[in-house]
Structure formats: C-alpha cells, structure tokens
C-alpha cells in the first residue's frame, strides 16, 4: 500500500469509509479499502500472531489474504453498523477465515492473492515485541486498534500542521506528548529549546492537543459505519478514567 501523501488522511473527511467501501463506485471502494487496510492491518497481523499462534510468515500471508478477500469477496457488504462495531465484525471474519482454511486443509497459496497490499511486517514484528501483551488476544486486538487510530491521527495532525505553517506546534507536541516519560522536558526547557516564552509553549501545546483530539475523532468517524457507532466508540475511547 503506497503511503498517502496527505498524511494518511482519507479524502472523504468526516464521512464513513465503511459506507464508501460498501458502495457501488469501484474507485471509491478501492480507496476506502486502502484506508481500512491502513487502519486495521497491524491489529489483524498481531492478533493472528497471538490468537492463532501463526508463524511470522504465515501471519504475513494470512493478513495479505484477509485484506485481499475483504475487497474481492465483498465481505463488508454483510456488515451492518446497527448490529455491532466494525472491528468486532472484522475479528469475527478473521476467525472464520482462519477456521475455514484450517478445515478445508487445502489452503490456496496465499502469497498469490490477486490484490497484494504492501505492508511493513518487519515493523509490525518490532512493535509486537515492544508492546505489553496482557489479557486475551481479543483485548489485545482492541488495544492495537486504539494504538493504530492514535498513530494515524498523529500523522494527520503532522500533515495539517505542516500545511498550516504550524510546524512548531507539532514539534512541541511530538517532544512533549509523544516522547518518553523519563526524558520528557519541562515547559521551561522546551521554551528555551524553541526560543519561545513559556506561555507560548502552553498555548501551542493546547492548540496541538485540541487539533489532535479533532484528528482522532475525524479518524474515528471515518472508521465507523454510523453516527451511533461513532458516538459509542468515542465514548468508549474517551471513557477511560485518567489517573
């Protein structure tokens, strides 16, 4: 999958890519599927590695195959946002596909899938090793989904800040909010580093966080099939009590 020059922002901003993926326009469908693949391939890959204990190469093939089938076989046509979350639907599809393939015992060579998306499995393997894996594979899938959602929102924010000439705001956000806790600089240190007043650091960070929040919600809106699902997901996503 080619990197999106718009900072991974799907052009159908504030519209559901799920609806686009279920639509009739083949071009729109392919673009929508690209966005869905980008948001979900990491959770899918890591999930099958943990849930079905697939070897790395098998997990790579399975992930490729899964997203190819999603487009070719029109899996999403049977998804109804009223009945549940998209990622629960996808997880069910993953499990079903895996069990079907195991049952049939004559899996086609998945590497020959007609649609071959380019995914960085090497990076995903490193991420898998770096993240803590507590709880069930299903919980891990949810956690990975949140991680991907935030990561996509960060890229979206980066692109927006770049085009709006607010690169300092993003740089501050990256240094302060995306950095390691141990090496996190103080506002005063950031002010010195960026030659700003401390109040400017405060204001710039407030701006970046506000925009990041908007990016997350925009990303979420794209990744959900209905307004009800979006509201439900937003509540779930923001429903963790801050410590």
């Amino acid at each position: 999958m080619a990197p999106n020059p718009q900072g991974d922002a799907f052009p159908l901003t504030r519209h559901s890519v799920v609806a686009a993926a279920q639509g009739r326009d083949p071009q729109e469908r392919v673009r929508a599927m690209d966005a869905i693949t980008e948001a979900y391939w990491r959770p899918v890959y890591k999930y099958v590695r943990l849930r079905w204990r697939l070897e790395r190469e098998d997990a790579e093939d399975f992930t490729q195959d899964f997203f190819s089938r999603l487009l070719e076989k029109d899996f999403l046509a049977s998804y109804d946002p009223v009945k549940g979350k998209l990622r629960t639907f996808l997880r069910t599809c993953i499990d079903r596909l895996f069990l079907n393939q195991t049952r049939d015992a004559h899996r086609q060579k998945r590497g020959n899938a007609a649609v071959h998306v380019s995914l960085d499995f090497e990076e995903a393997e490193h991420e898998l090793a770096a993240s803590t894996q507590s709880g069930s594979p299903e919980d891990y899938f949810e956690k990975e989904w949140v991680r991907t959602l935030f990561a996509l929102a960060v890229e979206r924010l980066r692109a927006q800040c770049r085009s709006a000439g607010k690169t300092v705001q993003f740089a501050l956000f990256e240094r302060y909010d995306l950095g390691d806790t141990e090496t996190r600089p103080s506002y005063a240190a950031l002010a010195e580093e960026f030659s700003l007043a401390v109040t400017d650091v405060t204001n710039y960070l407030a701006f970046a966080r506000r925009e990041f929040r908007r990016c997350v919600l925009d990303q979420l809106r794209e990744m959900t099939g209905s307004e009800e699902e979006f509201n439900r997901e937003a509540q779930t996503l923001l429903g963790v009590d801050p410590k």
């Binding site: 770096a130 993240s131 803590t132 995306l178 996503l237 923001l238």
Partner: peptide
C-alpha cells in the same frame, strides 16, 4: 506511521479526555 508505545497511548488517551 510512528509506533506509539503503551505509555504514550495511555497519555494521549488521558489528554483526549482532559
């Protein structure tokens, strides 16, 4: 796409809520 460690995801989630 930049990988976000667990602690950063948790921090961002808190930021989102604040």
């Amino acid at each position: 796409m930049k990988f976000l460690p667990d602690q950063v995801v948790a921090r961002l989630q808190t930021e989102m809520q604040t």
